[in-house]
Structures are given as C-alpha cells and as structure tokens.
Design a protein around this nucleic acid. Structure first.
Lengths: 144, 144
DNA sequence: GAAATATTGTTAGGTAGCCTAACTATATGT
DNA sequence: ACATATAGTTAGGCTACCTAACAATATTTC
C-alpha cells in the first residue's frame, strides 16, 4: 500500500469514525441508559472499581467520573462501597437493579446491531469480521 | 455465519463504536476545531448551505445548527449569505479563514490517522480497507 | 511521632452541544 | 386578504465533559 492509498484510507477511516459518533448518539433511545452509562456499568460488572479506575478506563477525569457515579447512584444502579484498607477510596459496584438494567440495555443494543448486520450479505459480514482485530489495533494506536 | 457468530459480531462491533466515540474526543486537540466543527465546515466547503440543510446532514435539530453557525461565525470561519429568492433563508458559507482552518484541521487529523495506520502490517491494512464499504453500509443501516 | 507531602475523591463553577417550546418573519395557498 | 406553512432564532434546560480548589486520609521523612 503506497502513500496515496494510505492517505485515502486515512481519510475514509476518519469518515467512518465521524459517523460512529452520530450512530452512538442515535442508538441512545429515549428513557434508556446512555452509551456512556452502559460503558460505566459494564466496567464494574465483574467487580467493583474505584472512582479513579472508572475515570481512567473511560478516558475521563476523576470529577467527571464522580458525576457519572452520582447520576447512576441516583438511578439506583450503582452503590458505593467503603474500602477497608483505605478510607479515602470509594468502590463502586452494581446493585441488582443495575445488573438487570445493564443486561436489558445490552440486549436491546445487540438486537439493534444484529438487525443492521443482517442487511449485509455473507461476503460483507466476513469482511467486517476479518477487519475487527485490525480495527481494534488501529484504535489502540490512535488512543495513544 | 450462524446466529451465535452474528451475536458475537454485534457485540464486538458495538465495542468498536464505543471506542470510536472516545477516539474522536481524544483527537479534538486543544485550541483546535472540534470534530463536529470540522464536519460542519466540510459540509459547506463545496457550496453554501442553508441552516436547515446543515442540521439535516449533521443529524441534529435546527436550533443546534444555528448554535454551531453562531459559534463558527464568532470565530470568523463562516459567513451568512442572504438568499435572493427567499428572505427567510440563511445560507452559510466558508470565509477564507474558514477554508484555511478546515484545510489545516484536515491535514493534522489525516496525519495523525496515517501515523496510526502505519502501525498496522500490510495484511491488517488490507483487511481494514476491504471492510470499509461494508462498514459504511452497516453504518447506513444503523442510522435508519 | 510530628510535620510535610502525596493520593483519593468531592465541590464549585464553567463550556460545548444537544434538546423542546415558543416566537418572528416571510411565503404560499385559498 | 387571510390562514397556514416554512425558515430560522431565542429562551431555557439537560448531559457530559473540563479545571481549580478543597477535605480527608495515607505515606514518607526527619
């Protein structure tokens, strides 16, 4: 792949990224959890995390994470747990309501995505599936 | 591709989309134009557009487009042009400053993207390039 | 072991970008 | 000419991000 082709790919992938922002917004249905909220809940699904860890994982600052946790707490989806070994630390974990809200949101979003995927033919699906690891690597590179 | 594989692909593509939002935000360097602003300027690069058309293209409401136009106008990047045949209409076009700001922003962003692409090997690059049309189609399906 | 320093999270205050509802001005159709 | 439709703005509200300043607790250093 020569320089011209690389530039072209760069431009086209930028287009895709721009679209993605719009898509994610449009998938945020009324009254449901936002994408950011779903991400946060996913993060703490396996085990409670510190506010600082949530911020780092989400790529946001600690005060912004605090804000998210407060909002999710108000909705009854997360709970604050004291850390026994360090009184400064706040661990954030899912409540039962949080766990089922997360499951519902994931189910709905995966269904929407699966429906969209079904508009692709077998060849196109394969192309997308084949590209996923490379895209993940590319996104990794972009993030740093 | 069976149902299980489709579900898996749905989940993984959702992951990619989520990352994309984060990436686009992180590419919005300090003091530069935001991604949304770059999109708006790109839209009117070929010819001036109505506020309503900008809103429709960007997938936002008219008042939000007005707001964007005001902000870009304050920066001196766009100008309002009266429509001769309809006095209600506001056409929004690039100023010279807008045109060069757009070129600079595109150059910087494409360079960042090209650098990231260079971390991929030839095989991976090919996989991404091959998937772009299918991804575009998929995104189209998701948008509706 | 007391004082200085570092770390964790919250609070306060600000901005961008999105929204709906209500409005103004101009066109169009009856 | 009057009623209705269309284009855009204004007003007010929300989410989600930010920095700066702070409180509480840990840790290091003398």
């Amino acid at each position: 792949m020569n320089d011209v082709e690389l530039e072209d790919l760069a431009r086209r992938y930028r287009d895709i990224l721009r679209q993605a922002v719009y898509l994610v917004r449009s998938m945020d249905a009324d009254g449901e959890l936002s994408s950011g909220q779903v991400s946060t809940l996913s993060m703490i699904a396996a085990q409670p995390l510190r506010v600082g860890a949530i911020a780092r994982n989400a790529g946001i600052r600690v005060p912004s994470a605090t804000e998210q946790v407060i909002r999710l707490g108000t909705l009854g989806l997360v709970e604050r747990i004291a850390d026994e070994s360090d009184a400064r630390v706040v661990l954030v974990g899912l409540t039962e309501a949080g766990r089922s809200a997360l499951a519902a949101a994931n189910a709905r979003r995966n269904a929407v995505m699966a429906t969209a995927l079904m508009t692709l033919d077998a060849h196109e699906l394969q192309a997308v599936a084949n590209a996923i690891p490379a895209i993940a690597k590319l996104n990794e590179a972009l993030a740093s």
